[in-house]
Design a protein around this nucleic acid. Structure first.
Lengths: 99, 99
DNA sequence: TCCATATATCGGCATATCGCGATATGTCAC
DNA sequence: GTGACATATCGCGATATGCCGATATATGGA
């Protein structure tokens, strides 16, 4: 758990917004029928919501993932991202202690 | 309270370290006799501890101050900085809610 | 195999941040 | 006013980040 990397990932309003959106699946369109039993949200839906380019969102999700704040799972051609609640809680804990 | 500005200020290990050092006056040399009744730590002591240039530390303290994380008081030729505990607590609260 | 779709990576330009030395400002003592 | 000292600001080159379009990779279907 690299607090520098984590704070860098969080130091962007859109990336924080994405994390917040991922709290509630209903912030995104309903999943395709073949995805209803999967958790997480695909990159395309996140991109649509954030209204930034596909490459930007893909990079943002990689940054969030490298920081440990989200996890990803590939299913077919889709990558589903979801919050890593443990890592998010750990980040808040570290900040509360360190600051 | 601008969370973007605050997170930018916190997105630097030395600035976070300074905030942490300021929790305890004993992280710095004893105050001059004429300063014993004043709260806060002067820039020179912070610079000495951080081992960065005077201009860098002055800028760091301005960033922390602009973010509201510290307050400053001038006394003679010295500027004394101390933690703004309310703002720090508010930051942690906002992060806990937003993330 | 060839094509369509979803995502990831690359290369680039604009802007921001890092940390510095030089210089400006403010304050005190003389 | 002059000099000494503490701090703030300026200007710089180096590096990082923002965000993009173009391209590469991966998967599934005809």
């Amino acid at each position: 758990m690299d607090i520098n990397k984590t704070l860098s990932a969080l130091n962007n309003p859109v990336r924080r917004q994405i994390l917040a959106w991922l709290k509630d699946r209903s912030n995104f369109p309903p999943p395709l029928p073949e995805h209803v039993d999967l958790s997480g949200v695909c990159v395309g839906y996140i991109q649509e919501r954030a209204n930034l380019s596909q490459s930007t969102i893909s990079t943002y999700m990689r940054l969030l993932k490298d920081a440990g704040l989200v996890t990803s799972e590939r299913h077919g051609q889709w990558t589903f991202y979801k919050r890593n609640e443990d890592a998010i809680a750990a980040t808040l804990k570290i900040l509360a202690e360190e600051l």
